[in-house]
Structures are given as C-alpha cells and as structure tokens.
Write a protein that binds this DNA or RNA. Structure first.
Length: 274
DNA sequence: CGTAGACCCTGCGCGC
DNA sequence: TGCGCGCAGGGTCTAC
C-alpha cells in the first residue's frame, strides 16, 4: 500500500481529524519493528502534547506536535495508520497506539514489520540520520530533466534503479518507477549513461505525472478511511503495466513483460519502451 | 567510491 | 481441502 501517493493521501485524510487533538497516552504494544520502538522516547515527546499539523517527507508521515517535537511514521510494505474509536479491540499486528484526548485511537498496524516509528525532539529533520541523505521531493519544482541529467552524471547502472534511488529523488517506489518508465517510453534496463536530455525531460514529467495522478485517484482511500472500510481498489485500475504481465500494453497491444531487477519485479512493454 | 544482491517479516494466492 | 511455493508496494547492510 504505501507508496508516496498513499502516504500523501493518508496525510490529507488524517490532518483535519488529528489537528487540535492531544495525545493522552502512548501505548507500545509490541516494539519489534525494523528498528525497535522506543517507548520512553515516544512518551517523552508525545504525551500531553497537542497535534499542530501533519507533514510528509519522502514516504515518512510527520505528526508535528505543539512544542516542536515530531512523531515520524514509516509504513514500510504493509503498514497501516488508522484512526479508530476507542472500543475497537487491538488488531493482531497493532504495534503502536496513540490514545487521544478526543477519545479516538491512532494505531499503527504492520504485519510484515518493515515499518518504523519514532519521535524527534525538534522539526529539524536534516539532522536525523533517517533524513540526512534524502534527495529532492518529486512533486516539487526541483524535479526537472536537467536535474536528473546532472544527478546521473558519472553514474552507471539501469535507469530504473536510478529513479528509485532516494539519494537522488525520494518517493519513487517499484510501482511508480515502472509506470513512469512506461509513460516516458524508456526501457527499464537502459543505462543512465545513455539517456538523452529530451528523455530526461520526459522522465521528470512522467514521474511527477504518475505520482500526481495517483494522489488524485487516492481520494477514494480517503473515503474508505472515513467510512472505516477496507483499502481495496486503490489505484489498481489506473496502472498501465505494473502487475499486468501478459496483458496487452495499453498503447500498442504487445504483451506486457516482467523481469527481475535488483530482486524486484519490473513490468514494461518491450515495444514501447526503448 | 558505486553498484548488486541478500535480507528483514508475515500473509496471500496459486498450483498441485 | 490442505500444503508448499513464490511473491508482495519498503529500506538497509554487506560484499565486491
């Protein structure tokens, strides 16, 4: 579930319901996430504080508290952050719960435990090791063909891995790397050393477009969340190639192919992507 | 230094 | 129906 668009949709859906509420109690139900949860740190930075605003950096959701501290949540592969009424019993993989003064409970549920949650004393993200190395935001005006071309200078390797390298540009996961490459007509294994300026322009446009479109379509996730319904149907229908091995390419009809790059599935059209 | 690959973990769908 | 296998949208670490 969690790619950048989903995190952004989550941020937008939670913000109006969380801002102004206050953390009454922090409950660490099972600390075994990718990095062990730190009950003392979470308690110290969150308990008794009012939620001022929600932000996002890369795929990290930032819950900014009055007084300047910040709760940082990463959903990993299977994480869900949901707001539930207090009488809803704990979920099987509910690792962290924030009990709010308004009565509801903000819970982090993550079966695969690749997620992460921690609190920072300040809002100075760049000083924290999780953020220090991160590249530009893909939906900012920093993303451009010339930026990508500059960043690729002197580098080797396939363009797909380059687009997914968070030191260059954040938030481009496996799905949207595939979708952006398809939209730009660039073959996923093409070396970054062999991409023209025109193609870098197309790639920059494609990355912003697929992420932007996904955020707009993700509005349905907002409705699901509000109604307490499931998460199915999110953006699946809009994916051109991802997860569609053997299905016809929407542009030319050639069967979509799948191959493995760096242990991840890549979906692409052999004819449209060069 | 950069790049490629392994790995962390649970759940689900598929084929047998 | 039951079971084993492959696969899953994340990031990080190690070996080369």
């Amino acid at each position: 579930m969690p790619e950048l668009p989903e995190v952004e949709v989550l941020r937008r859906s939670l913000e109006p319901r969380l801002v102004g509420d206050e953390v009454r109690r922090v409950e660490v139900r099972s600390p075994a996430l990718r990095e062990p949860l730190d009950p003392e740190g979470l308690d110290r930075h969150l308990t008794g504080r009012r939620i001022e605003r929600l932000d996002r950096r890369a795929k990290y959701l930032l819950v900014e508290m009055a007084g300047g501290s910040t709760l940082v949540v990463h959903l990993g592969m299977s994480g869900q952050l949901t707001l539930v009424p207090p009488d809803v019993p704990p979920a099987r993989h509910e690792h962290l719960a924030l009990h709010l003064a308004g009565g509801s409970r903000l819970r982090l549920h993550d079966p695969r435990r690749f997620g992460n949650a921690f609190a920072l004393a300040t809002r100075d993200l760049a000083a924290d090791r999780h953020f220090a190395h991160l590249g530009i935001e893909p939906l900012s005006d920093e993303l451009s063909g010339s930026f990508l071309q500059q960043a690729a200078r002197g580098r080797r390797g396939p363009v797909k891995a380059f687009l997914m390298d968070a030191r260059v540009v954040v938030g481009v996961g496996n799905i949207y790397a595939c979708e952006a490459l398809f939209r730009a007509g660039v073959h996923p294994t093409r070396s970054v050393a062999r991409i023209s300026r025109e193609r870098w322009d197309r790639l920059a446009e494609a990355v912003a477009a697929v992420l932007g479109d996904a955020i707009e379509e993700g509005g349905t996730t907002l409705n699901d969340f509000r109604n307490g319904m499931g998460e199915s149907g999110y953006f699946q229908v809009s994916l051109a190639v991802y997860g569609r091995e053997g299905e016809p390419c929407p542009r030319c009809g050639e069967a979509v192919r799948r191959r493995v790059q760096s242990n991840r599935s890549t979906y692409y059209c052999f004819r449209c992507q060069r």
